[in-house]
Simulated assay, not measured.
Amino acid sequence: MALGRARGGERRIDYWPGFVDALSTLLLVFVFLLTVFVLVQFFLTREMAGKDDAMARLQAQIRELTDLLALERTSRDDAESDLGSLRSSLALMQQERDRLRSEIVAPPDEAEQAAARGRAEALASQLAQQKDVAAQALSQIDLLNQQIAALRRQMAALEEALAISESKDKESQAKLADLGRRLNVALAQRVQELTRFRSEFFGRLRAILGDRPDIRIVGDRFVFQSEVFFDPGSAGIRPEAIPALDKLAEAIAALEKEIPSDIAWVLRVDGHTDNRPIQTPQFPSNWELSAARAIAVVQYLVGKGIQPVHLVAAGFGEYQPIDAADSDEARAKNRRIELKLTER
């Protein structure tokens, strides 16, 4: 009665709606930033993949043109070598022609003069043929020089295109790195704020349920020892657990009213057991026992008016221990029911 009069005589300020509004806003911002990051990552990845393909094609063309240029240079060198040989042969023939002409001018007799004229005519014919071959070689060298010049222009254009592509690729990578850095900073800030609000929410649950050693906060989860709700090897809720479950249902009902309807959230109820095997007709393994206990808690909360869309039941068996020691104390810690407020 004295406590009731004291509460009636003073006004209490409820900060909880403000905390929930801030939590919902942070969740929306977090989802929005994550969506933006995924979209930007997707488009930039596609753009970078296309640029990588283009760069690979350009590099393949450059290698092909380089091989062609080397082949053309080899052909030109061969042609120049042949031309040098032809020029040497032409010079020798010209010397022989001059010698024969000198013999024709003053031959010792008519027979030698006729033979000299025959040799001179033969050399003249060979000389004409060599000149034609030399002219063809010069023409081929000119054509090769033109082809080499065209290949060089193509290589210069490809190298310029490759440089532009590499520059754009570096700019894209820099933008992506900057966006990722800014997004990571923003997400880190939001996670810190979300962690603070979750801690305050669990603190409120602690105040509602009382400061009991079998109820504690572990990370982002609210942990009940299984003995609070269930007898050993059973999934039936103990009568002694009804007051605690009723208070929990009241807190969740208030949460449903305060969180906006456009935020997809659930309270996940996780069942965990120790590593002692169980083999009964009802529970052939710890999987069935942990799942049945989580479902029993969810069904009770639904019976108290909590919307099923905001509840999830999960059974983990003995495979997620919080204490891996082989002792009765560790096994007692591992037999638990966990509540986690998360996104749907």
Rank of each mutant, 00 (worst) to 15 (best):
P213L: 04
I337Q: 02
A244S: 09
W16F: 03
L301W: 07
Q95K: 00
D246M: 14
I259D: 00
T273W: 01
R331G: 08
K247E: 01
E200G: 14
R238K: 13
R216E: 14
R335N: 09
F222D: 01
T45I: 01
V133F: 10
D98Q: 03
Q94W: 05
G303P: 01
A325N: 15
P281S: 00
V40S: 11
M1K: 14
V298N: 04
Q140C: 08
L34A: 10
L44N: 00
Q320S: 15
F316R: 11
L151P: 07
A174S: 03
L138M: 07
A314F: 02
E329Y: 12
I237M: 02
V36N: 06
E329R: 12
A254G: 07
A70P: 07
T195D: 11
S85Q: 03
T280C: 00
R212H: 11
N145R: 11
S199L: 15
D220T: 14
P277S: 01
A91W: 05
W265P: 09
A254I: 05
Q282I: 13
F224I: 04
K51D: 12
R182S: 09
R198G: 02
I148V: 03
R190I: 11
L33H: 09
Q126R: 10
L39Y: 06
E47F: 01
V302A: 04
E112I: 07
A251I: 04
K257V: 15
A49N: 15
M55W: 08
A325R: 15
M48Q: 09
L26E: 10
G236E: 15
R12A: 13
V40F: 10
D262Q: 14
K170R: 12
A70D: 10
V29E: 02
R276P: 03
L162P: 06
D21M: 08
V266I: 11
Q154K: 15
T280P: 00
G18D: 14
N145E: 12
G219M: 00
D211A: 11
F32T: 12
I263L: 10
T35G: 07
I104P: 06
K340G: 05
